[in-house]
Amino acid sequence: MASDRLARLCAVALVALALFNFPMVEVVERWAKVTSVPLVPLYFFVAWAGVIALAAWLLERGGGGEP
């Protein structure tokens, strides 16, 4: 159980690493050039919040036992 959760959190960390770096950021940057919406900051904050929400969901479901 605990090691399952750790594995899932590591996966979330890898997803976060991918979201916050090349090439995802480059893709968003290209889109941002053709719109007036501040896409780059929006993208970072939304992706960031999503990662936190995912981690919170993984960590808080099933109560808080000794990790």
Partner: peptide
């Protein structure tokens, strides 16, 4: 430099995900 302030907080976010490791 716009969003250049962000890595200082994204890095800790990544590490925090590994708190249980």
């Amino acid at each position: 430099q716009g969003v250049a302030f962000l890595p200082v907080y994204l890095g800790p976010t990544l590490l925090a995900l590994l708190f249980l490791g």
